[in-house]
Design a protein around this nucleic acid. Structure first.
Lengths: 224, 224
DNA sequence: CGGGCCATTGATGCAATTCAACAGCCGTGG
DNA sequence: CCACGGCTGTTGAATTGCATCAATGGCCCG
């Protein structure tokens, strides 16, 4: 099913053979990191299952998560010698890893792959920019509300328009804070506020139930 | 000189002919906007001279500038029916505009153009993510210092390592605030602080002199 | 049972926003 | 020519949203 949307998917047989020749499966445990920012960029990959975080940090250790990757997402940065961001598993993760150089060569030889990657990169750029609006201009409450709605969508509890939805957050409070540019405490406080107001339920640590999607969307304000 | 780095540049003659057939020159005055967020995405373009801002805003009107475009940068979003961001001229601007559909067709037929666009998009994504770190994790002073250093680079006063550099900001204080996720007043205060401390000079409204690049870099903290 | 994590909650502090006043600059039109 | 209003930028005072500091409880695992 991942194959349908992934870079490997929607390739023809010949292209698939090429990719398979250079790709190797790999598993990561929760917390393991595949790439460290600043290291030589040796690999690209396709995410098959699980969730990855893409993070950057300041010289003095402040961290910002600059992207979350879900199954079928592309991992890595072709054409760069050095990795700009760290890539770390938030859950157990399965990848299909390609050494970067051969992968780049494959891109050159298979126009459809390159085309596909271009479209994904353009989409990723749109998403990054939407996040810039959130980081720069939203309040803590708006950030947390948007985040929860986002998670619901990505974890598959998205579409069911106005029914309740429950899911398990793959992130700790601290990681959520790093996504939103806040602190642990503020995230926690905003979540209990949303709970007090009946918009969400927090049965246990990582579990979230969206009780009133419409109202939550209102608190997320801003442009979708 | 723009041709050297632009999408049109580094194309061969046959490709150039194709582009020229579909592209038309266009001029924008300071403040004119080429594309409105939410409108149908009709055009792509190459920026020949001047500076453009790319901006997003919340439902209630808060604005965030999500990117600045300089000569030779690519403008627009191929393969999207609707524009996600507004594109507005910060200075007088010259563009080479392509209707989106024909441009997409040209991409399909000219692999090297597509390849070039992919690399640029990947670079833009890196830059957007660097900005996310800034928006989420830097203090007002760090933001302003980084911004000024950035501007120096983009306006060509960049390289001259440790000499003084002067330039004219193409942005008003309010626009700088929209880049940094701050308010006008905070930007103004931080700039006069940097001036008081002797790191920069502010001869007149829009003019800036970088007096001590090294110290300014220290205040910008974080990762470059 | 004890020691890590993780999350929540309260008290306090501070950086940035908000509200407000004012000065310089410019073009317009009396 | 100068008076005027609009726009940009600076500065001050008050306010506040979020960070910081600190304490506590739950949970898992050794």
């Amino acid at each position: 099913m991942v194959r349908d949307k992934s870079l490997c998917g929607s390739l023809n047989d010949e292209e698939l053979i090429t990719l398979n020749r250079i790709g190797r499966p790999r598993r990561l445990d929760r917390g393991e990191t595949l790439v460290w920012a600043g290291d030589e960029a040796l690999h690209c990959a396709n995410l098959l299952s699980g969730v990855l975080k893409l993070s950057a940090s300041t010289a003095d250790g402040r961290e910002q998560i600059v992207g979350l990757l879900y199954p079928s997402d592309f991992v890595g940065r072709p054409f760069a010698e050095e990795a700009e961001h760290s890539v770390t598993a938030l859950t157990e993760v399965e990848l299909c890893v390609f050494p970067r150089k051969p992968f780049e060569a494959a891109l050159e030889n298979h126009v459809r792959m390159e085309r596909l990657l271009l479209r994904r990169t353009l989409a990723a750029l749109d998403e990054a920019r939407a996040r810039m609006l959130m980081l720069g201009r939203k309040s803590a409450e708006e950030k947390v509300a948007s985040f929860l709605l986002d998670m619901a969508v990505h974890l598959g509890c998205g579409k069911a328009a106005e029914t309740e939805a429950s899911f398990d957050l793959p992130l700790t409070r601290s990681q959520i804070a790093d996504v939103l540019g806040l602190t642990i405490e503020t995230v926690s406080r905003q979540m209990t506020k949303l709970k007090r107001d009946g918009l969400i339920g927090l049965p246990s640590g990582r579990q979230v139930t969206i009780r009133n999607r419409r109202a939550l969307r209102e608190r997320a304000e801003a442009a979708a």
